[in-house]
Amino acid sequence: MNKSNDSHLNKEQIYKAMIDESELLSSEREHLSGCSECRAELEDFEKDLKLLGQTAERFVPLPKNRMVLHEKAGKNSLFGWRTSFAAAITILFFVITMHSDSMKLLLSNKTDVANSELYSEDILMTEVNNLVENSLPAKHLFISREEDTDYDEDFIDFVVPSVDDELLSVAVKGGNVSC
């Protein structure tokens, strides 16, 4: 890329010069200032881009509407402030109302349901306990006299003796089962 004073600048150096001449080496800068050919190439490219800018500017249509700044900005912020304030108040009101009503309803419902469930469970458990203690109805207990009996385990063993395992196995082997 290093150029001697008498060799022309290449395309890359011309682009560099277009962007910022100080990007060139001092020898390149020196050449550019003295060489009419390189200067013409650079100026030609610069002229093209300047013309492109001018043509683009010429072809931009004129704006049709007046710009409204303060009204729009003011209106927007005022409208935004009012709307958001009203929306916040409304939402707050609904939230408080709904929350308090639903909480009340929920709490009252909850206690009612809990109480009724406890009550029905109590009734059920009383019936179950009664059935465990006295499997027969009261009049049948009276007939069977079971209501007065208080059998202990010794009595039950006496009435229904437990089966001796050894005797039972012998009896099974012999093919006789006797009680």
């Binding site: 704006p63 049709k64 509407n65 710009m67 700044l69 729009k72 900005a73």
Partner: peptide, 14 residues
């Protein structure tokens, strides 16, 4: 686009 350019320009100045 002229119309869009006007709108965007207004937004920029706001």
């Amino acid at each position: 686009s002229g119309m869009d350019a006007e709108d965007v320009t207004q937004d920029i100045f706001i």
